[in-house]
């Protein structure tokens, strides 16, 4: 039996209209419309496009959750095995739409998703981790090349064949690390690599060292005596008993705790949930990680305006950078809304 595929396209390729129809609400068409016809043909009977979703780019970008939910419902209704979107070429909003729909459906439905766009389309950087993106030309003239490449990769994914490197398979590197078993143990691979490096011969590192994000420094606080300061920590300080069950390692959440009226963290009221360092000292006196006692003194002495009544805490032990980034953004937003002027972030 052929695999069943849903194809997401925009209003232009769906024949609804151009820019003036970019607010077109998503509609589901049975069978193939626009580029879905070419895709259907390229799948050569091994898979078939069972439905085409046509949606205006502006509508999709402005209503990402709603559109993703509709696509998810359609996937279920049609018992689809995969989702394809685009190609979006160099259309920025279409690229965003294809990326967001593919990433959301991959996560929600656990089915393979494939899209295609011009490598410099902003959708690539945003969504490459969440889906497979075939590099396409910057305009619809590249349709003839993109569609067969999308079909080939899609069929491999549907057959659950092990993928080679992105270069070999012809998709844009997702930057996602996948475990595999090599022929040799790591120790032998290390010595093999050392011999190549010593001989000045080419070798391939198994991991390229990361490059981290940078942010522009914010201006300093001019009126400290009037400023509200918040405490945030990756050292895992939580109320005794760890009420939110923050994990000792690879945390899956952060906690928000009220310290109104708390002047000192003691061994009977606070502890650390962090499993990556010797907990003895933080459990004896959590101020060693989260300096509430000193900030209360400074507040009393009017050296600062006040200590924010909530602190935020997670465990930075093996926790994914992507999670930390997301929580950082959330915490930052909350602190901004609470009119906090500056943050002391402590790490262990």
């Amino acid at each position: 039996m052929a695999y069943r595929v849903i194809h997401y396209i925009n209003q232009f390729f769906g024949g609804v209209g151009g820019e003036e129809m970019a607010d077109h609400k998503p509609e589901v068409r049975v069978g193939q419309a626009g580029p879905a016809m070419a895709l259907h043909a390229a799948l050569k009977g091994e898979a078939e496009v069972v439905a085409t979703i046509v949606c205006g780019d502006n509508y999709c970008v402005a209503n990402q959750k709603e559109v993703a939910a509709l696509v998810a419902t359609t996937v279920k209704k049609y018992k689809a095995d995969a989702l394809v979107a685009g190609p979006a070429f160099n259309a920025g909003r279409y690229g965003m739409a294809c990326g967001t729909v593919c990433a959301a459906i991959g996560e929600a439905c656990g089915i393979p998703t494939v899209t295609a766009m011009f490598p410099e389309n902003p959708g690539v950087e945003l969504y490459k981790a969440g889906t497979y993106i075939i590099p396409a030309a910057d305009s619809a003239r590249g349709m003839g090349q993109a569609i067969p490449a999308m079909a080939a990769l899609l069929l491999k994914l549907l057959r659950k064949e092990a993928l080679q490197s992105p270069e070999a398979e012809g998709y844009i590197e997702r930057g996602v690390r996948v475990n595999m078993f090599y022929e040799k143990p790591g120790a032998e691979r290390a010595v093999d690599m050392l011999l190549l490096k010593l001989a000045g011969k080419p070798f391939t590192t198994e991991y390229k060292m990361p490059v981290f994000d940078r942010v522009t420094p914010r201006p300093g606080i001019t009126n400290m005596a009037g400023a509200t300061i918040a405490l945030v920590t990756s050292g895992g300080i939580v109320p005794k008993g760890n009420p939110d069950h923050i994990a000792a390692s690879s945390a899956r959440s952060y906690g928000e705790y009220d310290i109104a009226g708390v002047n000192d963290l003691t061994d009977t009221t606070y502890q650390t949930a962090h499993g990556g360092y010797d907990q003895t000292f933080a459990n004896q006196d959590a101020d060693r990680v989260l300096p509430v006692d000193v900030l209360r003194d400074l507040e009393r002495e009017k050296k600062i305006g006040k200590l924010h009544h909530l602190f935020y805490s997670t465990v930075g032990n093996g926790t994914a950078v992507a999670s930390a980034k997301k929580w950082g953004e959330e915490i930052g937003q909350k602190l901004k809304e609470a009119n906090v002027q500056a943050v002391i972030l402590t790490s262990t």
Binding site: A129, G130, T205, K208, M209, P210, S323
Partner: peptide, 21 residues
């Protein structure tokens, strides 16, 4: 690298680390 493998894998980094197993 996170459960989905999409995060940076190490807490520190250097350009000299060209050969990693």
């Amino acid at each position: 690298a996170g459960a989905n493998g999409a995060s940076q894998s190490l807490a520190d980094s250097c350009p000299e680390g060209t050969a990693v197993v």
